[in-house]
């Protein structure tokens, strides 16, 4: 930790916290308060006709939500994990190439990576639906080439859902990886080569450990929204691959079951928090002072 000598030691200790105050207030107002309200709602009984909820400390709603949706939760975890791994495998070489070989055109290639994502998330997904539909460009072409049967379909399958997730969350993986690789000192790679390390050894012993925080951040930034996503499943999937986000949406908007939806949201949030805590524990900073 570094402090300026011109300030008093006490002010110096407070500085990082004062600087972090806007973020703390932001988090409190827009994250902690809604989170507490959601948890409270999960324990209440509500009349959807009047919107009146009374606190009944109904902790059973959490166990009910788990027992009725555990299969779907595990399925969602599986899909999110698959999409994240696909994104990591696809993004790493892209980010590596841009970071080390794109030269003066880094910004151009980064922009090219992001251009498709200037279009709305839902519209992108719906376009994929058109592309993958039975009479869409891809399947129609494959059928005309007699490479697939006449009743072959992709929409409604697990493949379509995972592919949609992987596509839509790619920038969430690629950008943290790029930032992490960008900060890597190329001299370390040269030193590794000078010490007769091969490409694989250099990657394994130098690049991977130094990029670990970036990889983990990319993992979380992709995995958590993919886990709770409902758009891809609803547009590209079917009833055999329902994800937990769809169930939550239906509980809130179709059944008007606010406590049930809140309980399931709380479970999803809890699972996501485990990942974030693991990140903080393994790779995060120990105190706010580390940043000063």
């Amino acid at each position: 930790m570094t402090t300026t000598t011109s300030k008093s030691p006490r002010l110096g200790r407070l500085t990082p916290y004062l600087l972090g105050l806007p973020a703390i207030v932001w988090l409190a107002v827009f994250f902690v308060v809604p989170l507490v309200l959601m948890l409270a709602k999960a324990l209440q009984e509500c009349n959807p006709a009047t919107g009146v909820c009374t606190m009944s400390w109904n902790f059973a709603s959490l166990s009910d939500a788990w027992s009725s949706s555990s299969t779907i939760i595990f399925r969602s975890l599986g899909y999110a994990l698959a999409a994240t791994v696909i994104d990591l495998v696809l993004s790493f070489p892209i980010a590596y190439w841009i970071a080390f070989y794109a030269g003066r055109r880094k910004n151009f290639f980064l922009m090219m990576l992001l251009v498709p994502f200037f279009v709305s998330f839902v519209i992108r997904t719906v376009i994929w639906k058109f592309l993958l539909s039975s009479d869409g460009l891809i399947i129609h072409t494959l059928q005309n080439l007699h490479l697939v049967s006449s009743d072959y379909q992709i929409l409604g399958t697990t493949f379509a859902v995972v592919a949609g997730l992987a596509y839509n969350f790619l920038p969430f993986t690629a950008l943290p990886l790029y930032v992490s690789l960008e900060r890597l000192n190329p001299a370390l790679l040269e030193a590794s080569h000078d010490l007769y390390a091969g490409r694989i050894t250099t990657f394994r012993k130098i690049v991977l450990p130094l990029c670990a925080p970036g990889i983990f951040a990319a993992f979380l930034l992709t995995f958590i929204p993919a886990f709770g996503d409902y758009v891809n499943q609803q547009v590209l999937g079917g009833f055999t691959n329902t994800m937990v986000g769809t169930v939550i949406q239906n509980l809130f908007l179709v059944s008007n079951d606010f406590p049930g939806g809140s309980a399931l949201s709380a479970i999803v949030m809890g699972i996501s928090l485990i990942g974030i805590l693991a990140y903080g524990r393994l790779l995060g900073s120990k105190s706010i002072g580390d940043f000063v």
Partner: peptide, 19 residues
């Protein structure tokens, strides 16, 4: 009644999500 609505949803709302 609201109870009927809840019962109906219990029976039918889960079918489109595979449960």
């Amino acid at each position: 009644t609201q109870g009927e609505i809840d019962t109906w949803n219990e029976k039918f709302a889960g079918i489109p999500t595979g449960s």
